[in-house]
């Protein structure tokens, strides 16, 4: 595999496609021109004008398998609220930024969300999709490709020391789900007022065994007022915020399966305006903006599975 191809995979998720060249019209109709295909099919797809990367079933199996993103009605199992359980993998991408991931989506309807999720975190992900999802997957990839280039460092309000344990992973899952912005650390960082190291007296392992309550404890330590990001109007949107202090890019992933109108967002920082890009809609203006007291608030008229907001 060439360095160029490796870079391509790292830059955007790749659709894993095992159907033959006869499926070309469907892919072209969806605007899909980049594929991961079995090695023995590389040549035929390349000759057809596609940018291809060889990925065998064995390659896919070696990647960290990710669940199909979305929501399930597990309210009450791990949350004291009525919010549905979100199946999301952003925390896995944060935990292993150089990791290789694979989605095998057996049922239709999840490809666009998986592609959005992986794109938002810049994850190296291969996505095996149902043929019925080709149009929506193509549209999502086209949307991602249309975004203005902007590479900014992630924003974090606290650190989480990762000991590699499942319990630390589950804590990160719940923290990410609640839009508590953290950075995964190898050791306690002086950059943060709050450093979560599970197994220490401040964060006993027994407490972390209830990840929802554990996330609430950390939320209380941060205080909602001091959090860099708040999302109102939905319990099923997970955000990723990046910023260099002057500009910010906010990724909003909607796991609920339904469009959300009037989502309200508060971002701390010196921002006074911006633009939003919504999958399926394109560029839209921010609504009901309020910039004051070191933060900006705005609403989005509608978001589908994925939206990106650039603040300045």
């Amino acid at each position: 595999m060439t360095a160029a191809v490796l870079a391509l995979i790292a830059a955007a998720p790749c659709i894993y496609w095992t159907q033959g060249i006869e499926s070309r019209p469907a892919l072209e109709s969806a605007g899909i021109k980049r594929l991961c295909v079995p090695p023995d099919q590389m040549e035929v797809w390349r000759k057809a004008g596609f940018t291809v990367t060889a990925v065998s079933d064995a390659d896919l199996a070696q990647r960290e398998a990710l669940p199909a993103p979305g929501i399930t009605s597990r309210a009450g199992v791990a949350s004291p609220t009525r919010a549905p359980w979100i199946i999301a993998s952003g925390w896995r991408f944060m935990r292993e930024p150089a990791g290789k991931f694979g989605y095998v989506l057996a049922a239709p309807g999840k490809a666009a969300l998986a592609l959005a999720e992986a794109s938002a975190y810049g994850a190296d992900a291969v996505v095996k999709i149902d043929a019925g999802d080709v149009p929506s997957a193509g549209a999502m990839l086209a949307f991602v490709d249309s975004l203005p280039p902007l590479d900014l460092p992630p924003v974090a309000d606290f650190g989480v020391v990762d000991d590699g344990s499942p319990i630390a992973g589950e804590a990160m899952n719940l923290l990410a789900r609640r839009n508590l912005l953290f950075e995964v650390e190898k050791a306690v960082s002086p950059r943060f007022r709050v450093n979560v190291a599970i197994g220490t007296p401040a964060y006993p392992r027994e407490e972390a065994a209830d990840p929802s309550a554990f996330a609430q404890k950390i939320r209380a330590q941060l205080t909602d007022e001091q959090r860099s990001l708040r999302v109102y109007g939905s319990e099923v949107v997970i955000a990723r915020l990046t910023s260099d202090g002057r500009r910010a890019r906010l990724h909003l992933i909607n796991y609920g399966g339904r469009d959300i109108e009037g989502l309200r967002v508060r971002v701390r920082g010196p921002y006074h305006g911006g633009d939003a890009y919504v999958a399926g809609t394109g560029k839209v203006a921010l609504q009901d903006q309020v910039a004051a007291d070191g933060a900006i608030e705005f609403s989005l008229p509608k978001i589908s599975a994925y939206a990106v907001v650039d603040l300045r």
């Binding site: 909602d224 939905s234 319990e235 109108e261 989502l263 609403s299």
Partner: peptide
């Protein structure tokens, strides 16, 4: 949420909800 006024609200964390 578009039918609601984003600048007129009651804010409270009652059960740990995010919204």
């Amino acid at each position: 949420n578009s039918g609601y006024d984003p600048e007129t609200y009651l804010e409270a964390n009652l059960f740990g909800e995010e919204d």
